[in-house]
């Protein structure tokens, strides 16, 4: 979608800043906020792009770097950590051959860590884009990732 079409869905008011940035990021085929995205948002919200850059770097869901089609967020908070999220992270790293923060060569997956995702009843847990997957201590990652093309 054209950026201007996205912006039209929101009033140019400060309380829509994060919603707008989410929408622009979701619309970006590389799942990130480009300088162009930020400049357009700044213009729309009548603020400076320095201000928006500061906002973007504060919130962990936003990225200034291109990312994969699917963002894997592994919860590494105390409960999941106790339930061995570290092992989960290592396995995913090995399986996808990337480090945390990196994107697979085929641009499909970006691996990130996340704070508590509220899935503590099914720890360890993760999200792949909007999907939640829990009880990861004994799963076959191949079969999970196969579903994401």
């Amino acid at each position: 979608m054209e950026r201007s079409e996205i912006l039209k869905q929101f009033e140019p008011a400060n309380e829509n800043m994060l919603n707008i940035l989410h929408a622009l990021q979701n619309n970006n085929s590389q799942n990130y906020l480009s300088e162009e995205d930020i400049k357009i948002a700044a213009n729309y919200l009548n603020t400076t792009y320095s201000h928006i850059y500061g906002v973007v770097t504060y919130y962990t869901m936003f990225s200034l770097k291109p990312r994969g089609k699917y963002i894997i967020r592994v919860c590494n908070s105390p409960v999941c950590n106790m339930e061995n999220s570290t092992k989960v992270i290592e396995e995913i790293k090995r399986f996808l051959s990337i480090e945390v923060g990196e994107t697979t060569d085929d641009k499909r997956f970006t691996l990130e860590l996340s704070e508590c995702l509220g899935r503590c009843g099914k720890a360890p847990g993760m999200m792949i884009n909007e999907d939640v997957i829990g009880n990861l201590d004994n799963v076959d990652f191949k079969s999970i990732f196969e579903n994401y093309n």
Partner: peptide, 21 residues
């Protein structure tokens, strides 16, 4: 009244930026 400075990142690693750093 210019608003051209901000912080980047947060916590111990945060620092001042102008524009896109």
């Amino acid at each position: 009244g210019k608003n051209v400075l901000s912080f980047s990142e947060r916590g111990i690693t945060s620092y001042i930026i102008a524009g896109f750093d």
